[in-house]
Amino acid sequence: MKKIIFLFMLLSLLSFSKEYNIGDEITIKISGDITKNEIETAFKDYKVNNIKKDKNFYIVNFTSYKVGKNEVVIGNKKLSIDIVSTINDSENEIYQELANPNNRYIEKDYPHMFILSGIAGLLAFLAGVLMIIVDRAKDPYIIFKKRISKINDTNWREQISLELRTFIDSTLETNFLGGEYILKNPVTEEDINFIKKLDYIKFSSNKDGNYLEYKDQAIEIVERLRKELKNNAKL
């Protein structure tokens, strides 16, 4: 808010009693035999925003943040200005409800870093478990064990040979599924003869035979191949 006061140096004494709010910009016009330096000295205790010369007078813009009676002495002239606060008595107790501890908010030092570290650790653990599950799902030995366990008396003639050849191809990069039975360590002649025997049984008109014996022999071959492959990998 801008307040304007006219101060004429022609008077020997000028006194104002009008009230202004703290922080108001007050403008006065001063005429007479006076210099800018005298004006700056008179207003040294105030925030002077601007002093401008206009024809035969000075225009002074200033602000006071001191509550109460403010006096400006210019030569033998005195300017009195009353500055009042913009806060009334009723607003002095604006936070009185905070005196009640129940109405206060107390910021607690929660263990944020501990919680975040725990979440990160849990996610890392779950990721590790998932990787193990995925690796096991791709493991030829796990696949063989799962499928061989489902073989029964009706499908063993085709499935035992299929699962055994699948395991060999998955671990040795051979083509037993395509009928290329070649010797490749640790596959032996006996292993190939067993597979050929299964092929014969599969296409033979004689459907007799104890499938459990063939199933157990296929499992023994896989266990031996797996063990020898692990030993070769350590060398």
Rank of each mutant, 00 (worst) to 15 (best):
K196N: 12
R224H: 11
S117Q: 05
W156F: 05
V222W: 02
G118D: 08
I201M: 10
Y214P: 07
Q217N: 08
M131H: 12
D169N: 04
S205A: 09
V222K: 06
N206T: 07
T188W: 03
T154D: 11
D139R: 01
D191A: 05
L164C: 00
E223I: 06
D169V: 08
D208Y: 14
A137N: 09
F125C: 08
L116E: 08
V187P: 02
P111Y: 02
G121Y: 00
E180F: 07
I115T: 13
E190T: 11
L198S: 03
K215W: 11
S117G: 14
I143W: 01
N155A: 00
N231C: 06
T188D: 03
D139C: 03
I168V: 04
E173R: 06
L177W: 07
S205C: 13
L229T: 08
K145Y: 03
L116M: 15
L229P: 10
F167I: 03
A120R: 00
P186S: 05
I142L: 10
Q159M: 14
Y181A: 03
E223M: 04
P111K: 01
K207A: 10
H112L: 14
G128N: 01
A233I: 10
E190N: 07
F144W: 08
I168N: 01
E163S: 02
F144H: 01
N175D: 09
E228D: 11
D153P: 05
K146V: 11
K196T: 15
A120W: 00
A137M: 15
E173F: 15
N210Y: 07
R224D: 12
I142M: 04
P111V: 10
S117N: 14
I182C: 04
L177T: 06
S161N: 14
G178I: 04
P186H: 00
F194Q: 03
R157M: 09
I192K: 02
I182M: 12
S205Y: 14
T166D: 13
D208V: 08
M113K: 09
L198Q: 12
R147D: 10
